[in-house]
Amino acid sequence: MIVSVASGKGGTGKTTIATNLAVALDQPVQLLDCDVEEPNAHLFLKPVMEQSTEVYLEVPEIDPKLCTLCGKCQDICQFNALAVLPAMVLTFPELCHSCGGCFLVCPEGAVKSQQRLIGLVETGSRGQVRFAGGRLRVGEAMAPPLIRRVKENIRRGNPTILDAPPGTSCPVVTTLWGSDFVLLVTEPTPFGLSDLELAVGAVREMGLPLGLVINRADLGDRRVHDYAAQERLPILLEIPFDRQVATAYARGELLVETFPAWQQMMKQLYKQILTISGKSDPK
């Protein structure tokens, strides 16, 4: 069972739900932080890190001794990462998406492999929770290839929880792809609703089952509830604003440890996810 915790709008409580859900389940679980631009799950889970692996993208480097300046590499590249000049080929590794096209078309074998560091994947554990998370190098633009590397840590069988980045574009699609269920965490405000509508659209386009968690459910208005009713989106959990919870969160505490009620709340949430998705975890 792979559950992605996503939101559209940032700061609604994705990481809070993802980390607390993982810890509350009382069984071997995987937690993957796919918000590689601003990874936060480790701040709450505080796993013992075991490994940190640098992640590189394969980008081209032209061997001037073999290159005949035929221009085929420039022609196939959709991302302007190669420019054929009168006397040489210039490469722009930061623009390269690593599609491999230039390697395939060069008739002279002049395109050599070079590496661009895009970030790190860190793995570790805490109790029954296996953790893996990505950390994009500051200045690097492309999150999706790093997210794909984080997801290579998924081992089918145990429940897997993915903490997704905010938004609805390619890093979110890369995270959600292959999930069995998407939990959208929102708040009942105009911004929350607007971004929820976008997120629901994206999740539906991917054909994935989804459910809502409404956080700070008593601040704002009722329009998110109305929207959920109208679209027949199941609301799996509503969490009222609580200053003590906000303070515990601010300190980096796991709420299931500070507030016993959260343990039950998270277990119940997972049960509902299993029911709605019609799936179960193998024993």
């Binding site: 500051v138 492309m142 999150a143």
Partner: peptide, 10 residues
């Protein structure tokens, strides 16, 4: 601006 530090922020 957008959240994060990736492509749209850059």
């Amino acid at each position: 601006g957008p959240p994060g530090i990736g492509c749209p922020v850059i």
